[in-house]
């Protein structure tokens, strides 16, 4: 896992909203869509967290300080921060899915009085895989936000916290389901289970928002690479209301 901090070399791009993404180019290799993971209050510091799995992300992860890369953006529809004002906010993140949610968490904490209860529920594979661990520990010390972390499995000597899937944390979280906005990001299977658990807890599908991921190419809804049924992830998302994509998520072919 790598976090890139990018300074604009030329005119700064427009300030990004939490949940938006940039297209980053590793010269000579290719371009990839990467969510912003930094603080939206610091628009001059473009932060992206990536997992080196493909050729582009691998090349980006190998860049040295001072190296140049290409950047287009920001693109897409982000998290519904305005809609969340005055309501409880439940954030459910899994694995690397915490990265696109981190700007939303920064915003919630910076404007804490605008929101009701704030719950951050995070699931990771193991204690060693927990993303932004120091930041999570620092947020946990605050009295006005609940941060719970669970792992799928842990060596007995490594971990004293929750072990189990992230949905098990939901039953212990204090929020008013009728007045809650839920922001969910992680592997698609995890998001389906989270959306179902939120629904079971009484949160309406219209109030559940998921950040979808597909192979994005042009980022402006022209090329069709990220087409997901009738929508384009890059232009209409990546954040969608659950009621808009619930039917599509059930199709194996999409």
């Amino acid at each position: 896992m790598w976090t890139l901090e990018i300074e604009p070399d030329g005119p700064a791009s427009a300030a990004a909203a939490p949940g938006q993404f940039n297209m980053l180019t590793a010269f000579g290799v290719g371009e990839a869509a990467i969510s912003l993971s930094g603080d939206p209050a610091e628009p001059g510091r473009l932060v992206h967290t990536i997992r080196a799995v493909g050729p582009v992300s691998h090349a980006l992860a190998q860049l040295r300080p001072g190296a140049a890369l290409g950047l287009r953006g920001p693109f897409g529809a982000g998290w519904p921060m305005a809609e969340a004002a005055g309501r409880d906010v439940v954030i459910m993140a899994g694995g690397l899915g915490l990265a696109p949610l981190r700007p939303a968490i920064y915003r919630l904490l910076a404007e804490r009085a605008r929101y009701g209860q704030v719950q951050v529920l995070y699931g990771a594979r193991s204690p060693a895989d927990i993303l932004f661990r120091r930041e999570l520990e620092s947020w946990r010390r605050r009295l006005d936000v609940e941060i719970e972390v669970t792992v799928d499995h842990a060596a007995v000597s490594d971990w004293r916290g929750h072990v189990g899937v992230v949905t098990t944390l939901l039953g212990r979280a204090a929020f008013d389901p009728a007045n809650t906005v839920a922001l969910v990001c992680g592997p698609e299977i995890m998001m389906r289970f989270c959306a179902a658990a939120l629904g079971d807890a009484g949160v309406k599908a219209e109030a559940i928002h998921l950040s979808m991921e597909r192979n994005m190419k042009c980022a402006i809804g022209l090329c069709g690479h990220c087409q997901f049924g009738p929508v384009f992830i890059c232009r209409d998302g990546p954040v969608f209301r659950y009621d808009q994509v619930a039917g599509l998520l059930r199709h194996k072919e999409l």
Binding site: D152, H153, A154, A155, V156, W159, G161, H162, G164
Partner: peptide
């Protein structure tokens, strides 16, 4: 791997 916790 020693003892692995799978649920609390």
């Amino acid at each position: 791997r020693g003892a692995i916790t799978f649920q609390t």
